[in-house]
C-alpha cells in the first residue's frame, strides 16, 4: 500500500481547467483555463493583466451587493469586480494593465414577473463599476436572447464564447 501525505486540505488543485459556478469567482496566475457554463441573465466578468497574465473570471448573478442577500463576493457584479481586482494585484498583476471582457446578460424568457432586462441591468452595472475603477472594457458579448458559455485561457488571454445556436466560436 502506498502512503499518503494530505498536507493542507485547502491546498490548490493543479488542474488546468477550472469551472467557475454561479456566484463563484477565481483569480489565477497559473495559466488555468477558467470556464463558466450556461450564462443566461448572469454575466461573466473576465479580467486579464496583459503583462503578468494574471487572470480572473466571475460568474455573477445580481448587480449590487448592497441590495442582495448573502456575503458571496462572486454573486454580485460590483463586489466581484472589486474583489478580483484586489486579489489580482496581490497575485502580481499591474493595475494599469488590466483589461476587462463581459459575456452574458441575455433575456432568455419573456416573463413579466422577472422584470424587463434582468440581464441588461447586470451588464449596465458592470460597465459602471469598471468605468468607476478605470478598467477598460476591450470586448463584450452581451444581451440578446441566448445563453452563452465562456472558456477563458488565462495563459494567453484568449476568451472563447459558444452558444447553443451557433457552430462558430466567437473569440473576444
Amino acid at each position: 500500500m502506498k502512503t499518503f501525505d494530505f498536507g493542507d486540505d485547502e491546498a490548490e488543485s493543479t488542474r488546468e481547467e477550472r469551472l467557475v459556478g454561479v456566484s463563484g469567482y477565481h483569480v489565477t496566475s497559473e495559466g488555468e483555463t477558467l470556464i463558466a457554463y450556461g450564462l443566461g441573465a448572469c454575466i461573466a466578468i473576465a479580467l486579464w493583466d496583459t503583462d503578468s497574465t494574471v487572470g480572473a473570471l466571475a460568474h455573477t448573478l445580481l448587480p449590487r451587493q448592497d441590495k442582495g442577500l448573502g456575503a458571496s463576493s462572486g454573486k454580485y457584479v460590483d463586489a466581484a469586480i472589486q474583489t478580483m481586482l484586489r486579489e489580482m494585484v496581490e497575485a502580481g498583476a499591474g493595475y494599469s494593465t488590466i483589461e476587462a471582457r463581459l459575456v452574458g446578460g441575455a433575456d432568455i424568457f419573456e416573463l413579466k414577473a422577472l422584470g424587463k432586462g434582468v440581464g441588461t441591468k447586470n451588464v449596465a452595472v458592470a460597465r459602471e463599476e469598471l468605468d468607476r475603477l478605470d478598467v477598460p472594457i476591450v470586448a463584450e458579448a452581451t444581451g440578446g436572447e441566448h445563453g452563452r458559455t465562456v472558456e477563458f485561457d488565462t495563459a494567453t488571454g484568449r476568451l472563447e464564447v459558444t452558444t447553443a445556436h451557433a457552430d462558430d466560436v466567437e473569440v473576444l
Binding site: V22, G38, G40, A41, L62, K67, K75, L114, A164
Partner: peptide
Amino acid sequence: DMGAAVVDPLIVGLSE
C-alpha cells in the same frame, strides 16, 4: 437553449 442558461433567469428572479 443550454440547460443552465434557461434556469439562471429564474434564479436571478428569486435571488433578490
